[in-house]
Amino acid sequence: MQIFVKTLTGKTITLEVEPSDTIENVKAKIQDKEGIPPDQQRLIFAGKQLEDGRTLSDYNIQKESTSHLVLR
Rank of each mutant, 00 (worst) to 15 (best):
M1T: 04
Q2V: 15
I3K: 00
I3G: 01
F4Q: 08
F4W: 07
V5I: 14
K6I: 14
K6Y: 10
T7E: 03
L8I: 13
T9Y: 14
T9V: 08
G10M: 04
K11M: 09
K11I: 08
T12A: 05
I13D: 00
I13P: 00
I13L: 10
I13V: 05
T14R: 10
T14E: 08
T14I: 14
T14G: 05
L15I: 10
L15N: 00
E16V: 12
E16N: 11
E16L: 13
E18A: 13
P19C: 06
S20C: 11
S20K: 08
D21M: 10
D21C: 07
D21G: 03
D21R: 01
T22W: 05
T22A: 04
I23W: 02
I23C: 01
N25D: 12
K27C: 02
K27S: 01
K27E: 01
A28G: 09
A28Y: 12
K29R: 07
K29T: 03
I30D: 00
I30S: 00
Q31A: 14
K33N: 05
K33T: 08
G35Y: 03
P37L: 06
P37I: 05
P38W: 11
P38Q: 12
D39M: 09
D39Y: 12
Q40H: 12
Q41Y: 13
Q41M: 13
Q41F: 14
R42S: 10
L43G: 00
I44N: 05
I44Q: 06
F45E: 01
A46R: 14
A46W: 09
G47D: 05
G47C: 08
G47W: 04
K48N: 09
Q49I: 15
Q49W: 14
L50G: 02
E51K: 08
E51N: 07
E51R: 09
E51A: 08
D52P: 06
D52R: 04
D52F: 04
G53H: 14
G53P: 06
G53Y: 10
L56A: 01
S57D: 08
S57L: 11
I61L: 06
Q62H: 14
Q62L: 12
K63P: 15
K63H: 15
K63Y: 10
S65E: 08
S67W: 15
S67V: 15
S67P: 14
H68G: 06
H68W: 15
L69H: 02
L69W: 03
L69S: 02
L69D: 01
L69C: 02
V70H: 15
R72D: 11
R72F: 15
